[in-house]
Structures are given as structure tokens and as C-alpha cells.
Design a protein around this nucleic acid. Structure first.
Lengths: 257, 257
DNA sequence: TAGTGGTCTAGACCACCTC
DNA sequence: AGGTGGTCTAGACCACTAC
């Protein structure tokens, strides 16, 4: 008989309507009091069911407006080509991609001197807490917060490439700037994970409950040692990453989408 | 003055204690009634605060036991070496990795004939709904559900390599079996995304609220066309993926962790 | 049996949005 | 002003776990 609690029945019924298309993306759900009548449940019980759907990322709620079915539109980042020698770094490749997609990119930028967090220090093979240059970038697409990117450079590198520590963009791109100073990035190590956003991340990316973040950590190497560590935090509902590996000549003509 | 609602104050206070180490991973939180007294709030208000932390993936709850601080232990998968010509596919590489990590792997396996879902059909360049062979694998580490993996092979391939459609493992690994039949995978295209689990996924992976899944879709190519599409669903709290790209000779000696 | 969390109710008041 | 969701309370009963 496996009777489900009432708030789950509410959630399941609404989820079916959403999945089945009866409630298409962008549409409004009935109000809490309407649902309360329909399911013969108290308002609080209906709210429990709705909050389940919110935490699954299916719907959003806004005070005074109501509940709305989320619409999904993802932006795809090619991580294996990003930062090819031909591409500038620090958002320029990203801006180009976004513009090509017919969207309007925008970013804020700042530079700080920061002690290296433990995970970064480990990857840069410097002592935890030793000073690094942090170049931080907050990215928007059509004014929607999209991702944050924090790149740490070790102190020894900054001595050879002092403009890293100066505020403001490096027009030609940091990768090229570094290459011009004899620091060439010949490989990188990417780590990808996911989790729910911290309150800080939720604020910066303006995500509510039910939307995880996608974490991308890239450690760049010269011929003899790590030269940078970049941590990108994506809104999980708006971004997807891809890697092209090996011979993909069979793919070139007809890509999905 | 920016006064926070009481349930957020509760969540913030407990989050600080967790982040600060006063409540280490694995430890029990005070009971709801204790917290209710401590914060001078009703039990329901305390529950709202706790459920926030649950949805952030910081704590778990179990009936009759209480709330517990989550402990995190991640398993890392090297996606760029996985399935090198030297490695068998379909879990064997995975099992090897897991065993090397001193853990006990375990998996269930089944084979079905299935119409291709739209996204898979697109990637295999076959018509949506046309028949594919689905080889499905449910993986555990020390009896904890870890990931699911579903590989679709197009019908034309199965004619050339009939054992794909037979139930049961292919001892030498499917990649090698295919290579022996003249189908060599020369490249692949990986797509990575994240979202909250569907109820089905939550059941298979035994994840509660607050734990996203990491989705990995790999399309493998021969010299002229796509030969398979593998969709892996990881528990986001237990897994991390990495890619090694370019020259990483500077990394080989001292890897992080 | 006692203590824990899980479900549910009925009602109050507040904050926000639209008209 | 009227409707929406957001917060909070007090209390009831149930299900699970420990002892």
C-alpha cells in the first residue's frame, strides 16, 4: 500500500503536470490557496510540496507573484579549446563565445593580493597562506549572473610578469602576456565537481534553492612548474562544459544542436 | 538594519559552527527541541533553519536519530585517461581504480534493447526512437551507491558486433571487443553538467535533499561516425572528474593529495 | 518507554506586487 | 485594496531508534 505523505502527493502531481507539458516552462502555477483547496490540504502542507519542487530545481517562487516553472537554456563552454594559443584568456574567449551566441556579455573585474587558500597552494606547489595575485572576474550574460572566476598566480611569477598585479585588464590576454615574458603554458589539469552553493555564491550568482553550482578548477603548467590556478564557479542550471579528445573528424559536420 | 528572519539566524549560527569546526563532520547536532529552547523559536522555525542546511548539503537527518554533519570523501575519476586503449571499458577501469584506492567495488549490470532517447539519438546521428542496445550499470563502492552508467550502441554497430546485445559482461572490455571487430574508437566528445536528481535518480543513488548529481555524457567516435553514447550519473558529493591536457610533465612528481 | 525527527493543521501577521 | 508568497507559532499525532 506504500502510502505517500500528502505533501509528496502534491509534489508528484505537480511534477507530472510539469514533465507532461501541461505546465510549460515559464507558466505560473496555481496559488497556494487554490492548491490547498484542490488537494484538500492545509496551506503549510501544500507549501512543503512546493518547496520540494523548488529544491529539485523545477520551479521558482517570488513573493507577491507566485510560483513559476523554470525554463532551461544552457550555455556550452568548450573547455578543451578554451585558451588555445590563439585565444586570449580571462574572459575574452568567453566574451567572444557569448557574443557569437547573440547574447550580451558583461563583466566586473578586480585584482587583489591574497594569501593562497590551502587547495590552491597545493596545486601551485607553494606554501599555504603565501601571497598570490588573485584576478577575480564576475560574469553576466544579458545582465544575468553567470559565473565567477578566480585566478591565482604565484608570487614568483609576478616578479617576472609584474603587470599581473596591476588592476585592470591585460588587453592582449594574460596567457599571451605571459608567453611574451617567456612563460608558456604547455598543459593544464582540470578538475570538475558540483555541490550546492554557499550563501556567498548564492548571492553572487543569484541562485535560489535547487540550483547547484558547477566547479571547475584549472591548474596551468609551464614546462617545469604550475603557473596558475583558476577556479570557476558556474550556475549549474545555465552552463555545460565539454571536452573534445582525440580524432573527432567524424563529428565536424553535424554537431548536435 | 537588515534583520534576517529567525530561521536564517538559526541556519547561519549552525553553519558557522560547522564551518568553524565546532561541529566536525560526523558529529550529531543538538535535537530540535534543544535548538528550539536555545534560539527561543518554535520547533517549526528551527526545522526551517535545519532544512536549509540540509538543502545546502551540509547536514543530513534521519528519523529517530537526529541531524548529523555530512562528511565528504570524494573519489576522483580521470576522464582523459579512462578508456585508453590499454583499459577495458564498462566498469573495469572503474573497478580497478576503486580497488587501487583500497575500496571494495561492486556493480549490477543489465542489457536491454531500447528506443534511443532524443538526446542520445542526436549524438549517435540516428533517428529518435530507433532501436539501440542499452548496457546499463549500477555501481557501488563499499555498498554505497556511487553512480549509474548507461551506454547506447546504434543498431548498425550491433550487426557487426553481436555480443553487444548479449546479456552479461564482455570479459575483455567492450572497447577491445569492438576494436577486434574493426571498430576503433579514435576520439570522444564529453559533455558535463549538473542538476538536482530526479526522484528516480535519488532512489538509485540514495541521495537525499541537498546533493546534486554530476552528469557526464560521452559520445565515442570511430573514423567516420559516432559508435556509442555513454551517460554517467554520479553522486555529486562523492565524485570529481579530471582531465589532463597537453604537456603535464611538470606535474608528474608531486600530485595534490 | 522515552526521545528523536516526520507530517499535518489552523491561524496569525508581514512583505511584496498589481491594479 | 486585494492577492500572492514569507515567516512564525502552538499543538497534535505518527514513525523510527535506542535502551
Amino acid at each position: 500500500m506504500n502510502k505517500q505523505p500528502k505533501y509528496r502527493q502534491v509534489a508528484d502531481a505537480l511534477r507530472r503536470e510539469i514533465d507532461g507539458g501541461a505546465l510549460p516552462p515559464g507558466s505560473r502555477l496555481p496559488s497556494e490557496s487554490e492548491l490547498s483547496a484542490r488537494f484538500d490540504a492545509s496551506r503549510n502542507t501544500v507549501r512543503s510540496g512546493l518547496s520540494l519542487l523548488v529544491s529539485e530545481g523545477l520551479i521558482t517562487s517570488s513573493q507577491g507573484l507566485g510560483y513559476e516553472v523554470r525554463s532551461h537554456e544552457v550555455f556550452e563552454l568548450n573547455a578543451s579549446q578554451f585558451e588555445n594559443l590563439n585565444f586570449p584568456q580571462n574572459g575574452d574567449a568567453y566574451s567572444t563565445d557569448v557574443t557569437n551566441a547573440g547574447r550580451r556579455p558583461h563583466q566586473t573585474f578586480r585584482v587583489e593580493m591574497k594569501p593562497a587558500p590551502e587547495d590552491v597552494a597545493e596545486r601551485l606547489t607553494v606554501e599555504a597562506g603565501s601571497t598570490t595575485v588573485l584576478r577575480f572576474c564576475h560574469r553576466f550574460v544579458d545582465d544575468v549572473p553567470w559565473s565567477t572566476q578566480a585566478t591565482h598566480y604565484p608570487a614568483w611569477l609576478v616578479e617576472q610578469a609584474p603587470r599581473l598585479a596591476e588592476p585592470g585588464d591585460i588587453a592582449e590576454g594574460t596567457t599571451r602576456y605571459l608567453a611574451a615574458h617567456g612563460i608558456e603554458q604547455v598543459g593544464y589539469f582540470d578538475e570538475i565537481s558540483t555541490r550546492m552553493p554557499t550563501p556567498d555564491e548564492a548571492r553572487l550568482l543569484e541562485v535560489g534553492a535547487g540550483v547547484p553550482v558547477l566547479l571547475w578548477m584549472r591548474t596551468g603548467y609551464s614546462g617545469d612548474r604550475p603557473i596558475r590556478c583558476t577556479i570557476t564557479t558556474f550556475r549549474g542550471d545555465l552552463n555545460r562544459m565539454n571536452y573534445e579528445i582525440g580524432d573527432l573528424s567524424a563529428r565536424s559536420e553535424n554537431e548536435p544542436q
